[in-house]
Simulated assay, not measured.
Amino acid sequence: MSFESWAAFAAASAVLLVIPGPTILLVVSYALGQGWRTALPIAVGVALGDFTAMTLSMLGIGALLAASATVFTVLKIAGAAYLVYLGVKLFRAGGTLRAEPRADAASSARMMAHAWLVTALNPKSITFFVAFLPQFIDRHGDFFTQMMIFEATFLALAFTNAFGYALVASRARNLVGNPKALRIFNRTGGTLLIGAGIATVAMRSGN
């Protein structure tokens, strides 16, 4: 695996993680209702959930890699197209983040478990990883080494992202609900995702 592939993976992952989905809505809901104390347990739960979904996905990708080079290549191209699709969808998204404050008294362990369940058991998580990861994997490199590097990178980014969302939501609630700020954020992220999808295709065609 080249440094360029790892850097492309890290950049695309960082953009993908900040897209408000079910996990981020849960993070923001807890933070709006209970403040900054939710940041650490929620971030740990999100990272554990991503670890679960990502490990299951990587094992499936490893099986595809061993079974068929053609299927694996098709999956890589589909993954690049998926990035572009997500980018267009995010660019066209509105400027609202529908997250209702959760005022129910929940322990740190319960919040962590809730975040893990929402992240790991969302069927879209595994589907996403199966479509997203193959385009960055070197077929000629050691698969398990790449698996560990990609997982460690993604989990560090996932933890940081969830922690940051929780802090922002608890301290800057007006920003979270600001349509103009969210619209700019969505358009910037969408543009970066489209660029990442195109870049991964160009990177492969140049090899």
Rank of each mutant, 00 (worst) to 15 (best):
P123G: 00
N161C: 13
R110W: 12
F51I: 10
E100M: 08
L56A: 15
A99T: 08
T200W: 14
T96G: 09
L117V: 13
I61C: 05
R102C: 06
N122C: 07
A109Y: 13
F144L: 11
M112A: 15
M1D: 06
R139S: 11
P101Y: 00
I198R: 10
S13A: 15
M203L: 14
M203Y: 11
L90T: 15
L157N: 02
V130M: 00
G189H: 03
I42G: 04
V28T: 10
L56K: 05
I194R: 02
T188M: 13
F154R: 11
N122M: 07
V71G: 08
F9P: 14
Y85H: 11
E151Q: 14
A80W: 12
M58N: 02
L121E: 08
V201F: 14
L157S: 01
A105R: 15
F143E: 07
A199R: 15
A120T: 01
M148C: 13
T73E: 14
G206W: 14
I24V: 13
F3Q: 12
S125T: 06
G87R: 02
D104P: 03
A63H: 05
F129Y: 10
A169L: 12
A181Q: 05
L56P: 00
D138G: 05
R183H: 08
A78H: 06
A172N: 10
T153Q: 12
A172Q: 14
A172E: 11
F163V: 01
T191R: 02
L182N: 14
G206E: 10
G164Q: 08
F143Y: 06
G164C: 10
A31I: 11
W36A: 03
D142L: 06
V201R: 11
I194N: 01
F132Y: 05
A39H: 03
S125R: 01
G87K: 02
P22F: 07
W36H: 03
A67L: 10
V118M: 02
L17E: 01
F129Q: 04
N161Q: 09
A39N: 02
T200C: 12
A202W: 13
L26G: 04
E151G: 11
V118H: 00
P101H: 01
E151L: 14
W116G: 04
N122I: 07
G79K: 15
L40I: 04
G141A: 14
G87S: 05
I42P: 07
